[in-house]
Design a protein around this nucleic acid. Structure first.
Lengths: 203, 203
DNA sequence: GGTAAAGTAGAACGATCGTTCTACCAGGGG
DNA sequence: CCCCTGGTAGAACGATCGTTCTACTTTACC
């Protein structure tokens, strides 16, 4: 009876499916309710897999948390990059993060802000997931620096302000002002780029 | 032997002391490690009070969490207001939040960002503490609207952008870029106020 | 002086936590 | 054909969780 629904796939495909279902279930629960508030039994039940599979794939809850944060990081990078690629103008490419935010997680999941900031708040500094989230922020900063260089911005270290605005936008969404957050964020980002004389932008 | 160190105070003073010590211990632990990660035993031990006292004063962990968030909200309001009062120029009063951030919690506690955003991420929507944090954000927005009206700003609803910048600044601190966060926040806030033609500011 | 209030220490409750274990089943390759 | 791999179900582990309880001490007030 067990695993009957999986019959027909190859063993490797089933294995990938188990890991993927665990990550998906972990993301839905950890993000919505907080990491420490969710027990492994709840994740396992939502994923529809056996408890032992969790420990086979991730070694424990800590590994699952790290896997959840890695998956979310990678998914956001892909999503963001796709929106960057929709523009050719270098300044619009630097601002593409806001259109990415508009099409991110279309509402079926309650917006609780930045999952990686939340992880850094909840996890001890030496938790494997904390390293993932720190690296996520480092990546964001670095990517914006690249985009500013490509835009010929004389002060690419102004990427810090874009990161500030980005996280402020997510914070505003988490606080319940999600409807206005993105437009305000985009407005502030344009002001910031203008003030650093990256180039004139239309708004 | 028990309570000997308290001898000499009045009963009311001791009672206030017990509550205050609980709130202080709760804040230090909940903020540093996350709410769900901290057990009531740890709070009670750090406060140096009996377990029963916690339930006498707060009814349970949920009440203690709400009390912690209320205390932090009130402390921040006082701190902020004191910095507002240091200026007479209306625009500087609207920007006083950044000097307030510079003197907030002088480093002995690791900066983990906005406690109220963290609470909204970790607590269920119907938790008594979640209501406190929602009201906290509502207060911030309202207070900035007042300050913008007093500054003669033609668009006081631009207070939303100040809230965005404020929370972005805290997010940057939580991500480990605390040294640059406040100056970037202040810079963005000046740009925002200028763009809404509140008045020319020097910077 | 006696009583009620508010504190203390510490044991105990059932529930849930993360983790491990036993047992069984399916598929693929030697 | 057999066995190894990777999945399943579910019980069990000790630890910790939030909460309640008993018993005792101190203080304030009548």
């Amino acid at each position: 009876m067990a695993g009957a629904q999986q019959t027909g796939r190859t063993a490797q495909a089933r294995r990938e499916s188990v890991r993927q279902r665990l990550v998906t279930a972990a993301e839905e629960l950890f993000y919505a309710q907080g990491i420490a508030s969710v027990g492994v039994d709840a994740v396992v039940a939502r994923a529809g897999v056996a408890t032992a599979s969790l420990y086979k794939h991730f070694g424990g809850k800590d590994g699952l948390v790290a896997g959840y944060l890695e998956a979310r990081d990678e998914r956001w990078r892909r999503h963001w990059e796709a929106h960057i690629d929709q523009h050719s103008d270098p300044l619009e490419r630097a601002l593409a993060v806001f259109s990415a935010l508009e099409t991110w997680e279309p509402g079926h999941m309650p917006n609780k802000g930045c999952a990686h900031l939340a992880a850094l708040q909840q996890l001890p500094a030496d938790h494997p997931g904390a390293a993932v989230s720190r690296q996520h922020n480092h990546y964001l900063l670095d990517r914006w620096r690249q985009l500013l260089v490509e835009a010929g911005c004389p002060q690419p270290e102004a990427a810090t302000e874009l990161l500030l605005i980005y996280e402020g936008t997510l914070g505003l969404q988490a606080a319940g002002y999600g409807s206005e957050a993105v437009s305000h964020g985009r407005h502030l980002a344009r002001l910031s780029l203008e003030s650093h004389r990256c180039r004139e932008t239309s708004d």
